[in-house]
Amino acid sequence: MKINVDRDACCGAGQCALLAPDVFGQDDDDRVILLDERPGPELDFAVQEAMSMCPTGVIWVDQNA
């Protein structure tokens, strides 16, 4: 699994950083920072939750990468 984000479209809500802090962070402008683009399977649920809670849909997962 490889995680992708569109930082330019991020609204800075921060749900991703709250739900999966080992994978997502925020910069000084509150935009998403991808800390780990290939987290282990133990973080699958947290990543899926972060992706589904993102109000602008800037997180997506490539299962084949």
Rank of each mutant, 00 (worst) to 15 (best):
A20M: 08
A20D: 04
D44T: 11
V58T: 13
V58M: 03
Q48V: 09
G40I: 08
P41F: 05
F24A: 04
A20Y: 07
T56Y: 10
Q48R: 00
P55D: 12
D22F: 07
V58A: 02
A50C: 15
E49M: 15
S52E: 08
I59W: 08
P21G: 11
L35Y: 06
L35T: 13
E37H: 14
F24G: 06
R38D: 15
D27S: 04
P39E: 05
M51P: 00
D36I: 11
F45T: 12
C54G: 08
D29F: 09
M53E: 11
C54M: 09
A46E: 05
C54W: 07
V23K: 03
M53K: 05
C54P: 03
V58H: 06
G25K: 09
Q26K: 03
M51T: 06
S52F: 05
A20N: 08
P21L: 11
A46M: 04
S52C: 00
D29N: 02
E49L: 13
F45S: 11
D44N: 15
A20R: 10
A46C: 09
I33Q: 05
P55A: 13
L35H: 06
P21S: 13
D44P: 08
I33S: 00
P41G: 15
P39F: 03
E37Q: 14
P39W: 04
D30Y: 10
V47E: 01
D30G: 07
D30S: 13
A50K: 08
E49K: 08
I33T: 00
V32M: 07
D36L: 11
G57D: 06
F24M: 09
E42C: 13
L34Q: 02
Q26C: 06
G25N: 02
R38H: 15
L35F: 11
P55W: 06
